[in-house]
């Protein structure tokens, strides 16, 4: 494992079998169907940083989140967390210590909180499960502190989730995630179900908590502007593969992969600079039947014969990696872009 790496993901794969039932398959002579949701991903996350994964729906970014926290077992590949291989540490004791140190925040604050539990019990559950409180008074104090940390009041613990707005519920989810005193939080689109003014509150809260509690985040989002504000490093996913990763400023200033450039081009221009969004032809192909070679080639303006047959490898460049034949061969010029300049 490389120096300074806190979360190390190597060759991570997850395939889902979405075949029809056996009998239907035999009768209709249909083959098995496998979705390659995550198809070989390498990520390094350093302690205290925010690594973001962006991509369009169906690119496998949420699957990566679930693999990392262990909600899905990987088909292949390694996930190491602070030097521990998550796959081999299946023994109860050691594994539960690791589980305590990583927690997840989900997208939909309406679905991720049990409507029949009081907020106090929702937040107290991880504390009880990991045996982190001495007695009842200590538990109450811990839950009260957690609620205050997310800018709610201890009295809110007596209420039920339905009594809160979407933003407040997401605060409760964050408090629950913090209850086991984790170091690493996996956040799967934590603000995409919220209105913008509330989204800003939650993003600010997450950044404050990160500074105060020295948290490391894996942040999943489809919103590039949000990612720009919150991340240290960004990875761009397309059809189960990581096409580019780079430090945030580099990625937004000098995007390399044609898909990254396309995504950046589609960000609406709120500064009214008159920059037109360049609509890109084509759509994300079905992950059931991904294109050969570089999976982006049918939509890529730079694609050639090699792109159609050979899958590009991730090669290091300017502090990040890019998987693109065009960049490797120098066919695609890398230039500074002014996405981040105020008009």
């Amino acid at each position: 494992m490389p120096e300074g790496s806190y979360v190390h993901i190597e060759g991570l794969k997850r395939y889902f079998d979405v075949s029809a039932p056996w009998l239907v398959r035999k009768l209709e002579r249909r083959p098995r169907q496998i979705v390659q949701a995550v198809d070989g991903i390498d990520i390094e996350i350093a302690k205290g940083e925010t690594f973001s994964l962006v991509g369009e729906s169906g690119c496998g970014k949420s699957t990566v989140a679930r693999l990392v926290v262990g909600l899905y077992p990987p088909t292949d590949g390694r996930i190491e967390f602070d030097g521990n291989n998550m796959a081999t540490r299946r023994k109860q004791g050691a594994h539960s210590t690791l589980r305590r140190r990583m927690q997840m925040i989900f997208q939909d604050p309406f679905a991720s909180l049990n409507p029949r539990w009081r907020v106090f019990d929702i937040i107290a559950e991880p504390i009880r499960a990991f045996g982190l409180s001495k007695d009842k008074a200590d538990l109450e104090k811990q839950v009260g502190d957690l609620l205050e940390q997310v800018k709610l009041t201890p009295a809110d613990g007596r209420k039920y989730p339905h009594e809160f707005s979407g933003g407040q519920r997401q605060r409760i989810s964050i408090a629950r995630a913090l209850a086991s005193q984790p170091e690493f939080l996996v956040c799967d689109e934590p603000t995409s179900a919220l209105d913008v003014s509330v989204q800003a509150q939650i993003l600010n809260l997450m950044m404050d908590l990160q500074r105060r509690l020295k948290l490391t985040y894996l942040f999943i989002s489809h919103n590039l502007a949000v990612v720009y504000h919150i991340s240290t490093r960004v990875g761009v996913m397309y059809l189960g593969r990581l096409v580019e990763q780079a430090p945030t400023d580099t990625l937004f200033r000098r995007p390399k992969h044609p898909y990254t450039r396309m995504l950046l081009d589609t960000i609406p221009d709120l500064d009214m600079t008159g920059r037109q969004r360049a609509p890109v032809a084509g759509e994300v192909p079905s992950p059931l039947n991904p294109p050969s070679g570089c999976s982006f080639h049918p939509r890529c303006p730079f694609a050639n014969e090699r792109c159609k047959v050979e899958r590009p490898k991730a090669l290091p460049i300017e502090g990040g990696t890019v998987a693109c034949h065009g960049i490797e061969e120098g066919r695609i010029p890398i230039e500074d872009r002014s996405y981040t300049a105020r008009g």
Partner: peptide, 24 residues
């Protein structure tokens, strides 16, 4: 004003986004 400020944009990266406290 608050709404426009709370939309993350690709402008200057700030420590915090402008936020409107409370909810509708």
């Amino acid at each position: 004003k608050g709404l426009m400020g709370s939309i993350p944009s690709l402008g200057v990266r700030t420590e915090r986004l402008t936020q409107i406290d409370g909810s509708m």
